[in-house]
């Protein structure tokens, strides 16, 4: 099990894009690695296709930073695969994701003021 190193919210910003997407996915419920990857692929219209190594590398780091934790709860035995590991977002992870969203909102506002963004189609 990875060592957990609690970090402050500000120290973790800005979040790498895959980490932000993973936190968003996990904020809706527990997922295993492959489910997260598929969800991100779908959410980004196929633009962010995480390789397995990158995915589990990010998961490892997020566990160390205390953004997520491994879940002990398992789905029904007929749906479950013992080799899969399920993860859930922690309170710190939720705060960091919110802070990142606020940071991005401010960035978009700044861009809007400077560039005058067109309305979405």
């Amino acid at each position: 099990m990875a060592k957990i190193k609690r970090s402050s919210v500000e120290a973790l910003l800005p979040l790498p894009l895959p980490v932000f997407h993973m936190l968003l996915g996990l904020s809706e419920g527990e997922r295993h690695g492959y489910a997260l990857k598929r969800e991100i692929l779908q959410r980004t219209g196929g633009k962010l296709n995480l390789g397995s190594g990158a995915l589990y590398g990010s998961i490892n780091k997020m566990l160390e930073q205390g953004l997520i934790e491994e879940s002990e709860e398992r789905p029904d035995s007929h749906l479950d695969d013992e080799r899969r590991r399920y993860y859930r977002i922690t309170a710190l992870g939720r705060r960091v994701a919110q802070a990142e969203a606020v940071r991005l909102r401010q960035l978009v506002r700044l861009a809007e003021d400077s560039l005058g963004l067109p309305e979405p189609a």
Binding site: A2, S52, L55, Y56, G57, N60, R83
Partner: peptide, 21 residues
């Protein structure tokens, strides 16, 4: 080729994911 600690922790899910994909 991964470091031993990482392989022990994530080797099985990585393999599993590769097979699925």
């Amino acid at each position: 080729l991964y470091p031993a600690r990482f392989r022990e922790e994530y080797g099985t899910p990585l393999e599993r994911q590769f097979v699925d994909e």
